[in-house]
Structures are given as C-alpha cells and as structure tokens.
Design a protein around this nucleic acid. Structure first.
Lengths: 184, 184
DNA sequence: ATCTCATGAGACACCGATGTCTCAGATGCT
DNA sequence: AGCATCTGAGACATCGGTGTCTCATGAGAT
C-alpha cells in the first residue's frame, strides 16, 4: 500500500521542515508508528530523507503539470502554479532547507528539471511583457521559491492562515509591497 | 582581541548558513584554525551556535539603527534598511534557518524586539498609505525576511551578484514581479 | 640564543543517535 | 480456536561527532 509510505513521509515532512536534525524517534512518533516500524518501511535515515526529497519533487512536478505552466499567459500560469503549489508549501520548505540532498545526482537532476521549468515560465513572461525585465528570470524564480517556502513555514507555525496563504503569496510576489499609486 | 572571535564567527556563518549540521572540523577549517583552537575560543558547539546567533542579532539591530527605520517615510526607511541589511544577508539566512536558537530565552527576546521593529515599520507604512493594506504587516515582515535570507543564500552560492543583491531585493519586494502597466 | 606562549596535530574517552535484534501482544483470517 | 502477520517495546552493538588531553612545532619577545 503506497499510501502507507506516503503517510509516513507526510508526517516526516511536518517535523523535518522545521527541524532537519530531528531524531528518528520524533519522526516515528509524529507518524504514529514505532521506530522499529519506521525502520521496516525505510532502511535508514538517509533513505528516509531521500524519499522525502523525492516526494517533494514529485509533488512539485505535479503542481507544475496541473498548473500547465507552459501554456498561455504567464501571469495566469503563475497564479495557477501558486494555487497548485501552496498545499505542498511545507514540502517546498523542506526542499529549500535541505542542501544535503544535492549530493544525490538523481535528486539533483530532478530538481534541475523542475527549476528550469519555473525559470522558463518567468522568461516567457518577460518576453510576453507581463513580468519585469529589470530582474533576471533566475532571481525571480529563486525569490518565488523562497516565498513559497516561507509560506510553508509560516503556515506550519501558525503565523499565517492556510486560507490566506495563496492570496498573500500571489499578491506580494506579483504586486509587491508598495501600494500602487495607480494613476493619481 | 574581539576581532579574532568575530572573524571565527564570520567564517562559521559561511558554513552554517548553508549546512547547519556542519561538523566542527569544517568550521575550524573554514576559519583557518584547528579544531583545538576553535575549542579554545568557544567552549563547544552549542556556545558557538549561540554566539553566531547573537552576532546575527547584533548586526540585525545595528542595521535597523543605521537605517533609522523609525524615522520618516516608511518607503525610504525600508530602502535604507535593505541597503544596511544586505551585507549581512548570510547572517540573516542563518538566523532564518536556525530554529534551535529559539530555546535560548535571551536570544529569543532579542529576536522579538528586532522583529517587532520591522513589523512596526510596515504597520507605519500602511498607515502612511505607502504599503498595501490587503497584506498583514506580519506577513510583509516575514516575507521580507525570507527574501533577505534568500539573497544571502543566492549570493553565497554565486547565483546572485553581490552588486545586484540590494537592487534585486528592493525592486522585487517593493514593486513585485509584475510589470507595471502604468496608465496604458 | 633562550624563553614564553599560542597553535596544530593527533590520541583518547564519552555520548548520543542509529541500526539490528528479540520477544510479547494485537490484529485479522480461516 | 488456531494460525499467520504485523506491530511496539525494549535491549543491545555500532558508529560518528564532540570534548579533553598531551606533545611537538614555530613565532615573537627579551
């Protein structure tokens, strides 16, 4: 039952995204299982971390797919991406904080692919004239991911209501902090 | 010579902001000293981490002071804060990623004070009509810090030029990713 | 030149987390 | 009921990082 593994991974994310050094005891307790069973499902800590990373990247890729980021107006595509990504913001927060994963070439490659898709989205948006061109697509994509991770942390710690998260992220990232003077 | 301690801390930040679990060996090597000397300067790992956090908060507070965030137009104050904060972005990246520090009540209190100053800046800006009021001051302040940390990581990893960092941060955070349609 | 002191290299014990094992109890099926 | 299977609790051994020590080296001072 794949759901079993995934539910354990889900619980692991909840702990690891906040404290990457959490002991296996905590993770097992968070998953509602014993440390012995955790070891039966995942051979060891390293494997668990890798699986969490892989899950995060699968979800990330799935969000890019469901948002159809390669299609249509870049602005609309980014809004779709935000809606698709925010439910997995905690996973993204984990990915952002875990540089240890970058040792694994397989994980690294998957990450590169998804990251390139996001960069391409921003580049396309710049070409379409909807995104600012003074900021590099690389920086836009990186900052976007930083804010997604920030949303994940804030929601987990109760500083941001899950209902507001997508809106807060979209408005800040797209529109910035300054009040639009509009045409005054 | 206090500079000695600080230079070690500086090197420690360079390593710890990227890998909070780095061994003392790496930190010592990064600082150009032996593990033995590192132990002579700081009693242990815990003390070192605490000192790095304290240094980060001192710098953070100093940046808030030099930027005079409590004075004048909130927009201009925030731009001053960005300029003052960006040189220590790596330190902020460390602070953002290190939740273990929050056990220490002294560190925690210092953090609360500085964080409140930033929140107050955004609140004042909202009252002045320069910052958007649809986004809570808390979220603005948190997102701002996330982006500062992101700048720190990006610069450290060479993905963002130090020269561009302040400008990239200010433009994105203040103006958002969308190209201003202005009055078309 | 000699002395003093800081440093680096290495050895060593300690400790905590991990990984593996066994066994008892629970669950589910026939 | 009897059996198979899974799980949790606990007891180990192992390993890696940390903390402490000693000793040799080298720079600087007198």
């Amino acid at each position: 039952m794949a759901t079993d593994r995934d539910s354990v991974l889900e619980a692991a994310v909840g702990v690891l995204s906040r404290r990457p050094t959490a002991h296996l005891d905590e993770i097992a307790r968070a998953a509602g299982i014993s440390r012995a069973t955790l070891h039966r499902v995942f051979p060891g800590r390293e494997a668990l971390i890798r699986e969490v990373g892989a899950l995060g990247l699968r979800r990330f890729a799935a969000a890019l797919d469901t948002a159809r980021v390669e299609e249509g107006d870049a602005h609309a595509a980014l809004r779709r991406l935000i809606d698709a990504l925010v439910p997995d913001a905690a996973l993204c927060a984990f990915l952002a904080g875990e540089n240890q994963l970058y040792d694994d070439p397989e994980i690294n490659e998957l990450w590169e692919i998804q990251d390139a898709r996001v960069r391409a989205l921003f580049l396309r948006g710049q070409q379409q004239g909807v995104f600012r061109i003074e900021l590099s697509a690389g920086w836009l994509s990186e900052a976007f991911f930083d804010l997604v991770a920030g949303v994940g942390w804030a929601v987990q710690d109760g500083r941001l209501a899950p209902r507001d998260s997508a809106h807060s992220l979209a408005e800040l990232f797209l529109g910035g902090a300054l009040r639009r003077p509009d045409h005054s």
